[in-house]
């Protein structure tokens, strides 16, 4: 990997960590200047991550998302992008604390891994693979956003804190995150199936990762409907978003770490 990546990666981590600190400070001292500065740090971290991603893409000649380091890094980039979109559009302010905390964990986990860019094996050398991965992490990032919004919803309900947007706004944003996440994850499944058909001769694989990806898809399809049922709106939806994130985490990390899988990416 290019040596220049290492300081860049640490700068992104530093900017994210500082952003989290300033968001925490904002909880104590409620001054607009503080959340503005925190968000400026988020934007700086995101810009550095974007530059790192671009440099690695250029150096590799393909979007490097083929090992755990690069997928964690890409996941974190997607989550930062998602948060920036929600913040710019809906002004969440200090509510960003929780998302950025998750992002910090992702980045720190990535930095524990080997960032070297592996040689591209022919099976992964197709735009279908790239589309599959890009849409999967965009989906995961939006499901993580929904998880954060779900937690915020519950916190707001219990504490009534004025730092957090009101319940009806949180509910709407949560529904939006789930819907967008489902749309992206649908595209991920379509491209993945097409790729599997061309590479292995079947479009649905019964390996445990394939099965759990289908579970994620079906779970969030169910959630796309649950919002039409009055009883499930609000708290029920927040709880489902949190449970859904558990399913996502298990599919992405748990299977690789706990069980054996013959999915091409473990």
């Amino acid at each position: 990997m290019p040596q220049s990546d290492i300081p860049l990666l640490w700068s992104a981590l530093g900017a994210n960590a500082l952003a989290v600190l300033f968001y925490l400070l904002h909880v104590q001292i409620r001054r607009p200047a503080i959340w503005r500065f925190a968000f400026a740090l988020v934007l700086t971290g995101f810009a550095v991550q974007t530059l790192t991603l671009a440099l690695r893409w250029f150096a590799a000649g393909y979007l490097p998302v083929t090992n755990l380091f690069s997928t964690l890094f890409f996941f974190s980039w997607c989550l930062a992008a998602t948060y920036v979109y929600f913040e710019l559009r809906y002004r969440l302010h200090a509510s960003g604390l929780f998302v950025m905390l998750v992002n910090l964990v992702l980045l720190a986990a990535a930095l524990q891994r080997d960032p070297a860019i592996p040689a591209l094996v022919p099976a992964l050398d197709t735009p279908l693979f790239t589309l599959h991965i890009v849409f999967s992490f965009l989906g995961y990032a939006l499901f993580t956003m929904a998880f954060s919004l779900g937690v915020l919803y519950l916190v707001r309900r219990v504490t009534g804190s004025a730092l957090i947007p009101d319940l009806s706004k949180l509910r709407r944003l949560n529904e939006e995150a789930i819907f967008l996440g489902f749309i992206f994850f649908t595209l991920c499944m379509v491209f993945g199936s097409l790729w599997a058909y061309l590479a292995w001769g079947y479009w649905f694989s019964w390996n445990i990762k394939g099965v759990w990806s289908f579970i994620v898809w079906l779970f969030y399809a169910g959630m796309c409907h649950a919002k039409f049922v009055r009883r499930w709106q609000g708290t029920g939806y927040a709880l489902l978003s949190i449970a859904g994130f558990g399913v996502v985490l298990f599919t992405y990390l748990g299977i690789g770490l706990l069980l054996r899988s013959n999915h091409p990416l473990g």
Partner: peptide, 21 residues
């Protein structure tokens, strides 16, 4: 009915798949 069927399928495939590995 759609929500019930989707939830049940999710639960049963999730639990059943645990014996696969």
């Amino acid at each position: 009915l759609a929500i019930v069927l989707a939830s049940l399928s999710t639960l049963i495939i999730g639990a059943g798949s645990m014996v696969m590995p």
